[in-house]
């Protein structure tokens, strides 16, 4: 089995995730799109691990780390969204222009 279709699918998933981040209004939906991106990276790591037949399993271990970090990120991200929601009564990220001059 060739590695190219897997990598291209991962790239497509990555682009889909970026589309989602740019388009979605709801902050929770943006976080979902970020998960898509992380997932595409995972696919790449595992595929390369299989391609190289790495004895140290670097690719798999990296994807495990990424999954862990992603879990942490979702936890914090949702906590921030919750905080913002409490203060502004909305989860619409267009409303949060705190970084404006």
């Amino acid at each position: 089995m060739s590695i190219q279709p897997i990598l291209i699918a991962a790239a497509a998933l990555f682009s889909i995730g970026i589309y989602g981040i740019l388009v979605r209004r709801n902050a929770v939906m943006v976080l979902l799109s970020i998960e898509l991106i992380l997932n595409s990276v995972n696919i790449n790591f595992v595929a390369f691990n299989a391609m190289l037949s790495d004895v140290f399993l670097n690719g798999q271990i990296f994807s495990i780390f990424i999954i862990t970090i992603a879990a942490a990120e979702v936890g914090i991200g949702l906590a921030i969204v919750l905080m913002l929601f409490r203060n502004r009564e909305t989860a619409n990220i267009n409303e949060f222009d705190l970084m404006k001059w």
Binding site: M1, S2, I3, Q4, I6, L7, A47, A50, M51, S53
Partner: peptide, 8 residues
């Protein structure tokens, strides 16, 4: 990349 994936 054009190599194949080794499925062990």
């Amino acid at each position: 990349f054009d190599s194949t994936v080794v499925i062990s």
